[in-house]
Amino acid sequence: MSAATSTMTKRFDCRDAFATTLESLAERDERIVVVVNDSVGSSKVGGFAKRWPHRLINVGIAEQNMIGVAAGLANGGKIPFVCGAACFLTGRALEQIKADLAYSRANVKLCGMASGVAYGELGPTHHSIEDYGWLRVMGQIGIVVPSDPWETSEAVKAVAASEGPVFVRVSRMAVPALEHGDHSFTIGKAEVMRDGKDVAIIANGVMVHRALDAAAALAKEGIEARVISMASLAPLDETTILEAAATGGIVTVEEHSVRGGLGGAVAEVLAAKMPCRMRLLGFPGFLPTGSAEFLMEHYGLTAEGIAAAARELAAAR
């Protein structure tokens, strides 16, 4: 168990950890290639492109083609990391992801940049808050949602070493580095960031920081909230979910639609094996105009909002 906090003030863009790790892997493994839809800068793969120009495949603004090309590169023995804005990468090429990657079991790594509502004011066309649902229902594609630079770096290493298609969300929202103690990152395993017996908060991505802040606030009121980072949305760590259900209440928090995402995944496990009261925090659907920070506050995806939901569940035990 790691005693994690989010009190450090220095903030990081996880894309930097992503790019650095990818380059260090590419130094040792020439099979690693990058595929982009004209998204070199926004994916921070300019360094990669400079070092290995022949291993950076820019297919232009053509997402369907991008996914098919990646499947073909995998067929040719490469390990393609496909980098593009999460909204276009998933939604625009969904059938290619289904047929060419998931159904074909192609060894392709999808890296959804600027995921969630990171594009804020650019609006719902540019938000990627449907991707968990779209990909999760296929059941044949891993989904990894790291929360900080360390987890991003570990996730990139883990997906490179794994066989088969995986989607990794890489946020562009600056976040603090969390303490992970001696935890080792494994796809399919959650990390308990803080223990607690009164209620459990399951979050991933940028929401983990807010969940930890909520738990710190609740502790001052005498409510011990367990905080779980569910970086691996698929495959899901059912054991940790069922253990969390023993607290009597679970709050899920995600930078995603409340339908079909993390909350839905947790609810599916609980409904079948250990029904438990839940509060699902996330976005209702297409969002109004506003910055990412505004939208999160507007929909209660804040430490206060999470604490309120957890408090309610703890009180109702």
């Binding site: 495949i57 369907q64 083609n65 991008m66 996914i67 098919g68 090309v69 990646a70 499947a71 073909g72 590169l73 995998a74 067929n75 040719g76 023995g77 490469k78 393609p80 290619q96 060419d100």
Partner: peptide
């Protein structure tokens, strides 16, 4: 076609 193009690039 896109898959074949990817194999050809490899």
């Amino acid at each position: 076609m896109p898959v074949a193009v990817g194999i050809a690039i490899a």
